[in-house]
Simulated scan of single mutants.
Amino acid sequence: MGSPTDIGTSADRYQAFLMPGEKVAMEYKGLRDAAVFTDRRLIVVDPQGLRGRKVSVSSFPWKSVTAFSLENSGTFDLDAEMKICGSGWGVCELEFTKGVDVSAIAAFVNERIFD
């Protein structure tokens, strides 16, 4: 996924998928892909193919998340990894660049799935 970016940086890719009143809380952008954490769900934008003209947009509602795990970057690791498990859709895996505050992401997800 990359690193945190200003909210709205990738809005042209996900704006049409937002529901009325849905608020974006965090946005992470990689070279081509993006992850958007909203108050209602996680949206993953993944361009397909060499040119990225075809774009896959996946929506994972917080109410269907059953568990998640985080791996921090260690001494030799250059990234952090998050796995989100959900009822009806399996596992979504996200990789973040070194230096991403995964504890902030974990706190945000905890607030959404344990309400």
Rank of each mutant, 00 (worst) to 15 (best):
K98F: 14
V55P: 03
D46P: 05
G2H: 07
F37I: 04
L70E: 11
L50R: 12
D39V: 07
C85V: 11
P4W: 08
V109H: 00
V44K: 00
V45W: 05
A106T: 10
D115L: 00
W89D: 00
Y28T: 03
V102N: 04
R112H: 14
A106S: 15
A67W: 09
P61F: 03
W89V: 02
F37E: 03
V55C: 02
E27R: 05
A34V: 04
A34F: 03
T5A: 08
V24E: 06
A104N: 09
K29A: 06
F60Y: 14
S103Y: 13
T38R: 04
L94I: 14
R51E: 14
A80H: 09
G21L: 05
T5D: 04
V36S: 06
S64D: 09
F60L: 07
M1W: 03
I113G: 02
D6W: 10
R112D: 02
P47Y: 10
R112L: 05
D33V: 02
G49W: 05
D77S: 15
K98A: 13
A67C: 07
I43G: 00
E111H: 14
V57T: 12
T97E: 11
W89Y: 14
S56P: 01
T66V: 13
D39W: 06
R53F: 12
D12Q: 10
